[in-house]
Design a protein around this nucleic acid. Structure first.
Lengths: 336, 336
DNA sequence: TCTGATTCTGCATCCGGATGCACATTTCTG
DNA sequence: CAGAAATGTGCATCCGGATGCAGAATCAGA
């Protein structure tokens, strides 16, 4: 009867110390960069440690150092393909910096408050909140207070740092592009009207529209950033006979493109999105969009979280890139 | 000069104990279900705790209990939309069971070994490995030994529990369906040939094909589970003039559908996928597929990880559901 | 009412490392 | 070469809870 599988207890610093005849403190210092220990002693200990398979217990060290090296990532909308991509890049960047990512999936149904308690009890060093219109300002304050925090794709909080692509620039570039392609009457599809980012894009969009003397036919929203919402919104807008439609996010735009294909009036209507999710590049969609600098966002976030001192609560706005594809092809001007 | 933000140290059990005049042990026991403490004392302590905002420090308790309540999720392919969906459901199910998810993103480039060390140092209670052809069998053993472990969408490891949908059943049902729709000459697109799941589906597929007297024209692989690989593979297969193509995963099938549309020979070729990712339901694709029981997979995994005792290393095969859509429409039999 | 069984409670100690402090060594400096 | 300064090491203690053990308190039975 051998149940060693669960019995196999890892060695402690004291055990290793005893084995190689040094003090426990020496072992601890050997593994603590910058601590006061002779170079050769450290090397000897590290070598022996490798030999015996000793690794310091991170939990114990968290307790004394008051530092977990864990970043809580709060996310609610994994449906929008942009976010998995962002999370992937982010966790990779964090891992490179020696930080692990604890994922907090905020779901609509359950008691959100309760889910967020864990963020406190797990003592995460920092919190990254991704979009999450599900969290109100008060909850946000609760989970970010007393620790480093960065908001991604969320703005309007004076006391928390926020990293975004340059939404206003993106919106303007897209409008400029539509203008050059000959589109004049533009429809707008918002995602959720409660999204600060969405509203930011919207206001940049409309003001640029005005500057160029273009016309906003109408703005509609089905209160979701989803394919279905995009579909429904596009059909709504068709009544106005727009030249083109500005979707505030790619996932909306994809639904819109497919919807437009179901209606003869949809032919020739230009479409632009925002984000540049992988599907935007699929030939079937060929969506013109503004590419979010996902890697730069991940890097910047990581930098902010690893810097010493509290995170400066400013808005870090990173330039993206206009990606022109077929969906916004120049308008064929016939009888107007 | 107030820098209280970082100074605000949470209260300890001893402090609370002193405040309300009980011993530290009492406080600890009040928060430990099933420990020996009088009902009314516990309630008094819990009430005061809420009052003073005391919460036990999870790190300290991890140290003594030798239990972190953290599950490491090892994933490498976040590109395939099926996995974000699975991860979302999984983290939610785990959260409901009081477990947090530490995400380990295994990236091709970096030294994988090094990334996996963290799994050990963080003392995660359990590991869930999702697909990850990137990890070889040896690495898998390293990270799962001594702890509970479940493989998702990965098979062929005698000593680790594995949870999957019923891949063989799914493949058979899809073949049956193609048969009924009048398709006889079937092409096959594999993802990565190193994927055990892929091969399992393949063998069930071919054997059912044989049983029904249908014909496998050819099987191709571009060694990736991606839209692009599906695209290329579909075009490869067109030379054989198949009636229909079986794609071993939806994301491949989507690429395939779009590719078939670029070639006149692609017209009328039936397509089936596997997984039922959200995009499969988009009208533009309307992909017939076998839906993986994502929730059931998440629940089963959670159950296995929360059960007492070691995880039984068997294969848990859960039934999915055939989802028939337009992509596999009955073949229009013309001049053959 | 007294004894034995039960249920609680607090004390002391431990979990595995980190670290201030004092002392031992080594390295300079004059 | 003495004495000061710099460097390294171990001891003891702490981080914040968990838990075995012994004694206190409550309850039951006779």
């Amino acid at each position: 009867m051998d149940h060693s599988k669960s019995t196999k207890k890892p060695m402690t610093s004291r055990e290793l110390a005893a084995l190689i005849g040094v003090s426990q403190s020496a072992v601890s210092r050997a593994f603590t960069p910058g601590s006061s220990i002779a170079r050769d002693l450290r090397e000897r200990i590290l070598m022996q440690a490798r030999e015996y398979g000793y690794q310091p217990n991170a939990i114990a060290s968290m307790l004394t150092k008051r530092r977990t090296n864990i970043v809580g990532i709060v996310v609610s909308d994994m449906r929008n393909p942009f976010y998995p991509a962002l999370i992937e890049k982010l966790t990779q960047a964090l891992q490179r910096a020696g930080l692990q990512s604890l994922l907090f999936n905020v779901t609509p149904g359950a008691e959100i408050e309760k889910q967020l308690v864990a963020i406190h009890t797990y003592n995460v060093d920092a919190v990254v909140v991704i979009a999450s219109t599900m969290l109100n300002s008060r909850m946000l304050t609760r989970i970010t207070e007393g620790r480093k925090a960065v908001l991604l794709n969320r703005i309007g909080h004076e006391d928390i740092a926020s990293v975004c692509c340059d939404n206003a620039l993106g919106a303007r570039l897209l409008v400029d592009h539509l203008y050059e392609a000959g589109h004049r009457r533009i429809g707008h599809v918002a995602g959720m009207t409660s999204s600060g980012i969405g509203m930011l894009r919207y206001s940049a969009f409309t003001s640029r529209l005005a500057e160029l003397g273009m016309r906003l036919t109408r703005t509609v929203s089905h209160e979701a950033f989803s394919y279905e919402a995009g579909w429904d919104s596009a059909l709504d807008l068709l009544a106005d006979e727009p030249d083109a439609i500005f979707f505030t996010s790619d996932i909306l735009a994809l639904g819109g493109i497919d919807a437009l294909r179901t209606d003869p009036r949809g032919a020739g209507v230009g479409v632009v999105g925002f984000d540049d999710i992988p599907m935007a590049a699929w030939p079937n969609y060929s969506l013109t969009t503004y590419r979010q600098p996902v890697s730069a966002i991940a890097e910047t976030t990581t930098r902010l979280l690893t810097e010493d001192g509290p995170t400066t609560p400013k808005l870090y706005s990173l330039p993206g890139e206009l990606v022109i594809r077929a969906s916004s092809a120049p308008r064929i001007t016939g009888a107007e």
